[in-house]
Amino acid sequence: MRRIISMLMENEPGALSRVVGLFSQRGYNIETLNVAATDDPTLSRLTLTTVGDDKQIEQITKHLNKLVDVVKLVDLTEGAHIERDLMLIKVRAQGALRDEVKRTTDIFRGQIVDVGPNVYTIQLTGTSDKLDSFVAAMSEVDILEVVRSGVAGISRGEKILSL
């Protein structure tokens, strides 16, 4: 099963490498990874997605919790949550395809954020699935470059991850 694990960690050098190192050391996979400082500059928020059965996920969260730099951790997929991935995608847009790309972008509620004589750069946010579908919908189009932020997530309602 796909899980979204989100954590607060000390904003210290080496903290990220301990998290990433743990995954390679113990043979787990990271599918996406997103990390940035929070409103408190001493803390970073790291969100990653991984795939595993319940036993593996339990081990992963236990080992992450054991890392001295990890302050708090939550498996967002255990409850209602919001997840967002941001994609910037540059496609060749010429002739008739220019309209076609524009229409598909509108359907997906994306925005064209940069326009060139031959290319469009589109920005799209949503769940990873939505971004995947958009890429699939662009199958007729020449995709030049794709950049994704990786999933960032937060629990719904009152539930918060804080100190």
Partner: peptide, 14 residues
């Protein structure tokens, strides 16, 4: 050293 020892320490500091 912090990198090389990372998987075999409980924690490390620079």
């Amino acid at each position: 050293m912090v990198g090389i020892s990372r998987p075999i320490v409980k924690h490390s500091f620079m």
